[in-house]
Design a protein around this nucleic acid. Structure first.
Lengths: 344, 344
DNA sequence: ATCCAAACTGTAAGCGCTTCCACTCCGACC
DNA sequence: GGTCGGAGTGGAAGCGCTTACAGTTTGGAT
């Protein structure tokens, strides 16, 4: 504890007594508000140092009626994306004096309760994707909690930030069709998240524009495990074997490619494969994985900023940001681009 | 705001008034403490629901003199490890009713200040690796903040949790030497982190035990960029070219392998390469990357538990945990194990 | 009928901080 | 020499909650 490893932590009263000043002045010095003499400033600084004074944020929050903290609710933390997202978020928050309290709902026995508790200790909350069900989100709204949604279908009264999906997916699919592929399949369950449904929508639209029948999606979870099992099925489908697989994420695509490599199916000659996310492995496998890169850090940064605008009230109209994605062409899609896997 | 989107959020007074009871009873119902009649419980629950009441945690923290929150200080969030670490941490914390406030120091203009602020809003802090300099850590200690260090050299009075490094590195190095390698190099700067220095120590010890001269480390940062430049140097070293590279992490190793692949150097025939961390890409490259897996989630879990023990005071003696790592043999080390890159 | 304990409920005192307001200086200006 | 204004300071209220303590009921047992 402050003031030596014994006794309870020093409070502002201790500092005031030690500096022979009132707590009001101590507060003014420490917060840099109001007029204070140089002498007072110095005395307070020294007293605070000597007592190892750390202001109790809870008391300040109570007094100023603000937590200066954001809540961030994520479904999960596996994979590299969330790290980048969090990074971008934390960065912005840190630069603007906001703390970040995170909560992961996947595996949480009572997300609703957890999130309501969170709501009590922050000024606003950012929710990613399907981390929370809509009733819970509505509950937060009714409780008056400023809310920003990331990669989530729009909810009235909430801001949202997401990366563009449909059009990149369409562009990617069109490219494959342009290069003579005629039996593409979409791998991944559109119902698993809003993002994935948009990717499938783009995939579908590319087909519709050419008046092709839209293939039904292969509804599987977005895991390596699922990738392997899909690969097996593809292998066994003698007739009507697809000549291209548009995967909802890189994990699926990588697992597929690895499986094919071990079973004599050539990528991209026999079948083309694309992913989504541009994980590190995507540029190290051979052939390099064609994929779509999302600006995760930027997504986090923008979300933080939007929430702050809401919290401070500088903006009240809802706002929906859509960030551009980037198509990363490598060899797995067989469309003639080869960058030798040496790009960063 | 609660009680309709107008007006300020409902307080415990509003709930009490609405339920025609005292705030004391409301508190007792909501916290489940003390005796309350079924009637009162019901009235309070309903009132709280109707008013969308969310208890203000700052007020509770102030009253109970505890935040029920942990601080987590990380140097960075890039790479998959931190995600897993955070996951393990958050999981444990969530299950034990603790919130997690995270702070990233890399790129932070004033980590000390940020961390002191953090100290004011949590019950204890976990610091990873070199996220903080020792003076700052001492400062926290003097302020009486319970502290747990992850992957950090021991500091008196603090608990620590790390994964075993030296012995795995020694084992790995010995294995390479056993298979006839005679000119190994260690890639990565031992000064960059405690973990890396231990890995180098193990590498060195393996040499010493055979009375071989210990090669100086190739002091480079642990990045893909550095991996490429090291690869170039290796390529140019006509005489005295190393026949094996023990890398401090997978990023370095992967970049090296990719570069070699593009320049006609065969791995593992001409040169063997090993990494550290077992990132996803490690099992998708060809040859598969031999590496060492750390139990990141477990590291997080244990750290959370240790901190909680400290905060609640159930343990006061310092404790240092060392978690086992796992050597993952694949083809890049050329020691005859091949698992076809199909393991998960 | 009376009394007692147990069950429940309310009053009020904090928790540590910010900030409004009042007050005291003190130098500058008429 | 008196007045005014601003700089500096302190007193005290209040933020929303918990909880010790005291008070009120209730339902048996006597």
């Amino acid at each position: 504890m402050a003031s030596g490893p014994t006794g309870r932590p020093a409070t502002i009263y201790d500092v005031a007594a030690h500096a022979k000043l009132s707590i009001a002045t101590v507060s003014r010095v420490l917060q840099g508000t109001g007029p204070v003499s140089a002498k007072a400033r110095e005395r307070v600084d020294q007293a605070a140092r000597e007592l190892n004074y750390v202001p109790l944020r809870a008391a300040r929050s109570l007094a100023v009626q603000r937590h200066e903290a954001h809540g961030l609710v994520l479904p999960d933390l596996a994979g590299p994306f969330y790290g980048d997202l969090l990074m971008g978020y934390e960065r912005w928050a840190g630069e603007h004096g906001q703390s970040v309290v995170i909560t992961v709902t996947h595996g949480n026995p009572d997300p609703r309760r957890t999130v309501m508790d969170l709501a009590g200790r922050v000024d606003g909350i950012v929710v990613h994707g399907n981390a929370l069900d809509v009733p819970t989100i509505q509950g937060l709204r009714k409780a008056g909690v400023p809310l920003v949604l990331i990669a989530h279908p729009p909810v009235t009264g909430c801001d949202s930030v997401r990366s563009e999906s449909a059009s990149s997916a369409e562009q990617l699919t069109t490219r494959l069709l342009d290069h003579g592929r005629e039996n593409l399949q979409f791998v991944g369950d559109p119902a698993s998240s809003h993002d994935v449904s948009e990717r499938y929508a783009g995939f579908a639209k590319a087909h519709e524009l050419r008046e092709l029948q839209v293939p039904k999606p292969v509804r599987v979870p977005l895991t390596e495990e699922a990738g392997r099992s899909v690969a097996e099925k593809v292998l066994q489908a003698m007739n009507d074997r697809p000549d291209g697989l548009v995967c909802a994420n890189d994990e699926l695509a990588l697992a597929l490619i690895a499986f094919f490599a071990g079973h004599g199916i050539r990528v991209p000659e026999d079948i083309v494969v694309t992913g989504w996310d541009d994980v590190m492995a995507a540029r190290y496998v051979s052939p390099g994985l064609t994929t779509v890169r999302q600006p995760m850090a930027e997504l986090g940064r923008v979300a933080a900023e939007r929430l702050h605008e809401r919290v401070t009230g500088v903006r009240t109209r809802a706002r929906n940001d859509v960030l551009a994605t980037q198509l990363v062409l490598r060899d797995s899609c067989g469309t003639g681009i080869s960058n030798r896997g040496m790009e960063r």
